[in-house]
Design a binder for these strands. Structure first.
Lengths: 98, 98
DNA sequence: ACCATCAGGTTTGTATGACAAACTAGTTTG
DNA sequence: CAAACTAGTTTGTCATACAAACCTGATGGT
């Protein structure tokens, strides 16, 4: 049993998927941002971004706050403490890829 | 358009998948190894390992040599030059995940 | 001689998942 | 009033990961 390979096998699939890795990686660097902005940054389609966010929310990694900018609906995204922790662990695990 | 996110979006999916990442990462550290040994190292099932290897072979990243150890068939795996290059690029791209 | 086991797969089936397109619904701008 | 925008949900398709079953041929044990 190879320790390095075991770490790779155990990589958090929720974060590992590039679409979600973009989201988590971006959110890790900011306080919060809104749906549309993130959609433009990542160049993902609405449906795709939406489903990835739902997945991250279900995992407890992202907090989704539906609010309004005036009367226009706006969705704010934030990395949760659990999300930060999971991302840090993910980055540590990535270090074993050499 | 965010340069970091673009890099993440462009991660080589063939290598990115953990099963194949284990294979490539392991092969990058040795001259060659045989199927069974790799199967035990990675703890993957035969079918799964086989299909990942086929995928890597089709991408030109791994060379598969079917030979014999005495009269027992043995399959030798080796990372191709293209595979080495792709893995190096992948590792460089990974550095943009921070 | 025969049965189990091993090497090294291929084939098949299932279940998940990524992603886009279409549809909702309310808001605002020309 | 029509078009475009915000922020989704739903639906459908296609790819893929993975395991189980099947296969051939060789070897070991009894």
């Amino acid at each position: 049993m190879n320790e390095q390979l075991r770490t790779i096998a155990g990589l958090d699939r929720v974060i590992h998927e590039p679409g979600r890795l973009m989201i988590v990686s971006y959110l890790a660097g900011v306080e919060e941002c809104d749906f549309l902005f993130l959609m433009r940054q990542t160049e993902m389609s609405k449906g795709n971004l939406s489903s990835h966010l739902s997945r991250l929310e279900k995992a407890g990694y992202v907090e989704i706050e539906k609010t309004y900018r005036g009367k226009v609906p706006m969705t704010l995204l934030r990395l949760s403490p659990a999300g930060e922790a999971a991302f840090k662990k993910y980055l540590r695990d990535l270090d074993s890829v050499r």
